[in-house]
Nucleic acid binder design. Structure first.
Length: 512
DNA sequence: TTCCGACAGTGGGGTCGCAAT
DNA sequence: ATTGCGACCCCACTATCGGAA
């Protein structure tokens, strides 16, 4: 199959607004793909490369290359070139990679160039990723969409399911079940502003501590242990102490879900930055593990002794977890009978925060494990802080925000009477706010830059954030974590904005 | 008809590791 | 040695479609 066909369909998918139309376009293409093209076409149209990331980004791709006049690239040919590109390494490799990229782009038409660019940077912007590709695959093969979705969650991969379906038809779905050693999409939580609201929607529930670390899925099959992240990357080699722990547990075959994080001598959690740095270390893992050892805290069991527990209620899964994992390695929790019992949940949240944790996750006791779902049965609650900050500048948006000033530069007042930038945010704005701030910030602009504008510090905006973290980038030595706009405060003047001093005083554990 | 669940998009900061400077 | 870049951790929020109520 020619790449031009994919590029054309991708553009049509992007132009279609109805999801059903996108699905139909993808299904038509999947049906036409030859068997050898399928393992490439499916991920491409889901906006991903079968090779995963190539180590090539905007910098190399940004260089313009004259497009070819006529399409000639085949899907398989492109795949072979990209595989070769991913394998280039060593000194001088950047130049070689740039050369190969230039060669590929030079063989592509303008439309194909746009498609390849999106594919390689991971931004296809066609309004259809995995979920829509799953629908298209179901339509193309006559398999039930829910069955395909479930198979993909259990296989942890769209490609495997696509290959089986197109080769063997809808019956192939039955082959996909939870397998020890093969990661499944983890269950996710939605958020609520208070435990009262979280409990109100759930009835009888467990309230568990929310730990600020790295999500891990631990598989053990006899002497073999594998550890996967939330995105199903294999990080076994980086966590030798967790591998050892899994081998010591009193079970031969299991799959556990949990969080891994570092604690200090007093047993309080170390900062996310410290845990993430440790887990990210790959070169001298032994030294990293000695310096910042991490501990697992498990909260779910997906499989024990060959029994698949996914469809069992949390109560049953937790009973299995408790049989397998000693109490200190399980997440701290309390049980709440329902909305009449909210006081217990609120007390538990306060205690969790006092112990230095992020918040709580409220879980319905009767809910199964919804692999890959951000279902309503897990709800996280974290305290939210707010500040009144001053807009110092704004950056031009991309995609659907093109032509709008989007990403705000936020400043707090300093003791010297100026403003210290604390970070940026693009979150929380409605389309109306984007339009309004674009106009207002242009009026306040003192300098037009390529990336946006700097403005007179006059506009006050209320910002919500989850906490402070250390920063080497910003002058106060700290930055906001997960900053988002709540509303503009036109009733406030910049001299009413919060100061760096009060911010640091509110988070003494982070203050430099 | 209205409501709401699921998705895609729009990017944030930090850290690590590699290659280039 | 330092810098730039990309990958991958953590993540919030809005707009939209389409099925459920």
């Amino acid at each position: 199959m020619l790449l031009s066909r994919l590029a054309r369909v991708s553009q049509e998918v992007a132009a279609a607004s109805a999801r059903s139309r996108k699905t139909a376009l993808l299904a038509e293409l999947f049906r036409d793909a030859e068997a050898d093209d399928v393992p490439i076409v499916i991920p491409y149209l889901a906006g991903r490369l079968p090779q995963g990331r190539l180590g090539i980004g905007w910098k190399v791709l940004g260089r313009p290359v004259a497009p070819a006049a006529e399409p000639s690239l085949t899907v398989r040919g492109v795949d072979a070139r990209l595989t070769a590109l991913g394998k280039v390494s060593g000194t001088g490799s950047q130049a070689e990679r740039a050369r190969l990229v230039g060669e590929l782009m030079g063989a592509a038409t303008e439309e194909e160039q746009r498609f390849l660019f999106g594919l390689i940077t991971g931004e296809v912007r066609q309004g259809a990723l995995d979920a829509v590709a799953v629908e298209g695959l179901a339509l193309a093969t006559g398999a039930p969409a829910a069955g395909v979705r479930r198979a993909v969650m259990l296989a942890g991969s769209l490609q495997a399911v696509a290959g089986a379906l197109l080769a063997d038809g809808p019956d192939a779905l039955g082959r996909f079940r939870l397998t020890v050693g093969r990661p499944v999409q983890p269950m996710l939580a939605r958020s609520a502003p208070s435990v009262a609201e979280a409990v109100a929607g759930l009835g009888a529930c467990a309230v568990e501590e929310k730990l600020d670390g790295i999500r891990v899925q631990v598989h053990r099959d006899g002497g073999t242990v594998r550890i996967y992240t939330r995105t199903l990357d294999d990080i076994t080699d980086r966590l030798p102490e967790l591998t050892a722990t899994a081998r010591e547990l009193d079970g031969e075959r299991f799959v556990l879900d949990g969080e891994v994080l570092a604690f200090d001598e007093a047993g309080r959690p170390r900062s996310f930055q410290e845990t993430a740095g440790r887990v990210g270390s790959r070169v001298d893992v032994g030294a990293a593990a000695r310096e910042v050892p991490v501990s697992p805290v498990f909260f779910d069991a997906l499989s024990v002794d060959g029994r698949d527990l996914l469809d069992l209620p949390l109560t049953r899964r937790h009973a299995e977890l408790a049989r397998l994992v000693p109490e200190p390695m399980r997440v701290r929790r309390t049980l709440v009978s329902g909305p009449g019992d909210v006081g217990r949940a609120e007390d538990f949240l306060a205690a969790a925060l006092a112990r230095g944790h992020e918040g709580v996750v409220v879980k319905a006791l009767d809910a199964p494990y919804g692999a890959g779902r951000r279902g309503a049965s897990w709800v996280k609650v974290k305290p939210v802080h707010t500040l009144d900050l001053v807009v110092l500048g704004a950056e031009w948006g991309h995609g659907r925000r093109t032509g709008r000033l989007s990403n705000l530069h936020l400043g707090a007042r300093t003791a010297e009477g100026g403003f210290a930038m604390l970070g940026k945010t693009f979150k929380g704005m409605t389309d109306a706010m984007l339009a309004w701030q674009t106009e207002r910030l242009r009026e306040l602009a003192v300098a037009e830059k390529g990336w946006g504008v700097t403005v007179r510090p006059e506009l006050v905006v209320e910002i919500a954030y989850d906490g402070l973290q250390r920063s080497t980038r910003y002058p106060a030595g700290v930055t906001l974590r997960f900053a988002r706009v709540v509303r503009y405060r036109e009733d406030k003047r910049p001299q009413d904005a919060d100061t760096v001093e009060t911010l640091l005083a509110a988070h003494p554990e982070v203050a430099p």
